[in-house]
Simulated scan of single mutants.
Amino acid sequence: MPLLTYIGEISPRPILLIAGENAHSRYFSEDAYKAAAQPKELMIIKAADHVDLYDRISLIPFEKLTSFFRDNLK
């Protein structure tokens, strides 16, 4: 089953996609964002690759994650 087959069924649940600017997998986040219905957000982290968002604490957007979950997990 292709990964994006049912992405339209996620709506109306909010989606936050985060990718590194230099990540080899960035295209997948961009494709998922294009295919998803609203509400959706795509955050590209400058100067980061895929692995940076696992262990480079200074690049992980903790404030955005906190606000996203606070706003959407009511």
Rank of each mutant, 00 (worst) to 15 (best):
T5Y: 04
K34L: 14
N72K: 05
L17P: 06
M1K: 05
E9S: 11
G8E: 10
I7T: 10
T5N: 12
I18A: 08
P2G: 07
P2Q: 09
P39A: 01
P12Y: 08
H24C: 01
F69R: 01
E9T: 14
R56V: 09
A36W: 10
D55T: 13
F62H: 12
D49I: 10
I45H: 11
S25Q: 07
K74C: 00
S58A: 15
I57A: 13
D52N: 15
P12K: 02
I57Q: 13
A37I: 02
H24Y: 08
I57P: 00
M1D: 12
L73K: 01
R13W: 03
I10R: 04
D49R: 10
I60K: 04
P14K: 01
N22F: 14
R13N: 06
D55R: 07
N22Q: 14
H50K: 11
E41Y: 10
K46G: 08
Y27P: 01
E63I: 12
Q38M: 11
D55A: 08
K40D: 07
Y27W: 14
K74R: 07
H24I: 13
M43H: 14
S58R: 14
E41L: 11
A48H: 09
F69K: 00
A32G: 06
E9L: 13
S67E: 06
A48L: 13
N72F: 05
D31I: 02
E63W: 03
I57V: 14
E30F: 12
Y6V: 09
Y54G: 09
L4S: 14
Y33G: 04
M1W: 05
K40I: 06
K46I: 02
L65G: 08
M1G: 10
K46H: 12
L3Y: 06
D71W: 00
